[in-house]
Design a binder for these strands. Structure first.
Lengths: 352, 352
DNA sequence: TTGTAGGCGTTATCAG
DNA sequence: CTGATAACGCCTACAA
């Protein structure tokens, strides 16, 4: 249709490239690159011109091309067993917001809870050249990650300071850790339950392979002992509502029941409460007191109004992002650590 | 430390590249590439050898390099206002699983609900060269997406067949649609409520700018009319528990109340129920009947046990993935459409 | 401050 | 079936 038919014009509109912008601005390709890099030196008016033309053409630097040479993909991988578990989705939400603010995008990977990290998933992930990896799935050791994930730097969330990390001795891999000190919050929970007369406690666990669960159980038992309370019953769980419900029914139908239940997570506590109220005809908190862990949004809903140990999500995400950025700035820095506190949020499931 | 000090050896172990594998296998770089592409022709034993050596070296093709030439990033962008909203997180979970199975990774982007799509976010996203984009945020028109997102193909979820799409007339952009037929499910809901004696209805909306909400309200009113029922009261909402709770309190404290409430989503219905039961001293379903929309996992929890209109998540995700794959196979195919049905799940919040 | 040359890791193309 | 060569879009290094 144009006066001088041109093969290029026949093609459908391709994405504008740096060359296109350069040609229109009468500068070199490199100048365009510099215009988009704040640190590069470039005469202000030239930069402004380039940016203006780029905007008109809808040009954006291609991350793939950039990643090839800078070795920074600006991609952060997040490994989760269940995006739809409330706690995880709330964490992913906050994390994505924070990372986006720093120019990183969140890449989601799912792994099954019930088995150890799939090797195929790892090699698959490696292909994307992630800058960092946050493994919420606790069935994967940081060594495995370090070993199989190129330049990505894993961050490991652990729940005690004495290094209960599943890494082989003699490992040379450096990994950063976010330590969650759960003892404070759990102690407050036990104290409150004890004060309201609980004598027989049960601990409803999460997935047994989960480090968070293992450490939570250990801390709970330890605190029970410190307070001169008898060893708690331990109920099998997997962080789900359904299992929590079933385990609670078992506890009261087969056994003699208890008067205080501490659940490894909030969703489990919901299952406990519903089993007590709707299947066993018991009152919460009058007959049985219940405490959860996480303080997800749903715990504030009036039907549950759950007393629970809170991990501050904003703090947690900020700490994670700090770790990521510091590690990216200096890949050879020694292992870094951030510590997080927990505290009890008192609502209506412990009382008289 | 080695006998012949070598500069390369001094560096810390870099990721293995195709050349490394090629050298060790005694083949060309291209052969390595072919070994990882099932369709390429390569003698079986040669492929096996290459794959074996690649595994030993921990080599995986680099997606960035590959994307540069194939123009396929294997990245699918998902735009959401709230990852932590249960419905969205459940959808993202299912979608990630499905996409992962097809070799695509899910890239998460957050946009604020309360304002139209940020242009900065769009250019930011473009840089990642997404293969496809699913906009759950309904405040962004497909035209905007098509215009500013290079080769990515947006998929649009709409809620009526008569094209209530916010695209400018004269637009030439092709976009695929997933149509959710909500009338069937809503009609079943109204029929049930009516059968149990509801006379005065209220509709609790979601975010007013949300297409899902607009169409849900329209369908609800339309069905009310068809059944000879009076126009429903419309309550302001934004899909959140808190707002639903407050709106319900208003409704009964300022006005005369109603005996049937239809909420634009399940979480809103939870807020309604809790307001009725815990703040207003009313019984559900005896005094007021409540129906939700979505059928999230929490709706089955005994404290709510919500009667709700279900969109089958598995169906929905399968349809989305079908659209993505078909469009990727033939970028110039005419616009495609998938349709989804809804149906009522009867639980305990409508009855006598 | 600016431009030129080279290469990041991969696949498409073409020749054998 | 296989290999050499030339891109893909970008940035770093160097030279002017």
């Amino acid at each position: 249709m144009s006066e001088h038919p041109n093969i290029q014009e026949a093609k459908r509109p391709e994405r504008a490239t740096a060359d296109t912008v350069a040609k229109l601005a009468g500068v070199s390709r490199v100048a365009v690159s510099r215009a988009f890099n704040p640190h590069a030196s470039l005469k202000k008016e030239k930069r402004d011109l380039i940016l203006k033309i780029a905007k008109e053409l809808g040009y954006t630097p291609d991350m793939a091309g950039r990643a090839l040479v800078t070795r920074r993909s600006h991609l952060v991988g997040v490994i989760v067993p269940d995006v739809c578990s409330p706690w995880e989705s709330q964490e992913i939400d906050a994390l994505t917001t924070a990372l986006q603010g720093e120019g990183f995008a969140t890449l989601l990977f799912k792994t099954r809870t019930d088995q150890s990290m799939d090797e195929r998933l790892l090699t698959y992930m490696k292909g994307f050249n992630l800058d960092s990896i946050i493994a919420f799935a606790e069935n994967v050791s940081p060594d495995t990650l370090t070993h199989s994930l190129g330049r990505a730097v894993p961050i490991y969330v652990s729940y005690s300071e004495d290094g209960s990390l599943p890494n082989q001795p003699g490992s040379t891999s450096v990994f950063d850790r976010l330590i969650v000190d759960q003892k404070t919050g759990i102690d407050q929970a036990v104290a409150l339950m004890q004060a309201y007369g609980c004598r027989n406690f049960a601990y409803l666990g999460g997935t047994t392979t989960s480090l968070a669960n293992t450490e939570r159980e250990r801390a709970f038992k330890c605190i029970m002992k410190e307070r001169g309370l008898p060893d708690p019953l331990v109920l099998q769980g997997d962080y789900t509502y359904e299992t929590a419900l079933a385990s609670t029914l078992d506890l009261f139908k087969v056994g003699e029941g208890v008067d205080g239940i501490f659940s490894a997570n909030d969703v489990g506590a919901f299952g406990v409460i519903d089993a007590l109220r709707f299947q066993l005809g018991l009152r919460v908190p009058e007959d049985v007191k219940v405490v959860g862990f996480d303080d997800i949004a749903q715990s504030g809903w009036l039907s549950y109004n759950l007393t629970t140990v809170k991990i501050d999500l904003e703090d947690r995400v900020r700490a994670l992002v700090r770790l990521i950025l510091r590690r990216l700035k200096d890949p050879n820095a020694p292992a870094m650590t951030e510590t997080l506190q927990t505290r009890l949020i008192v609502r209506g499931t412990v009382g008289s």
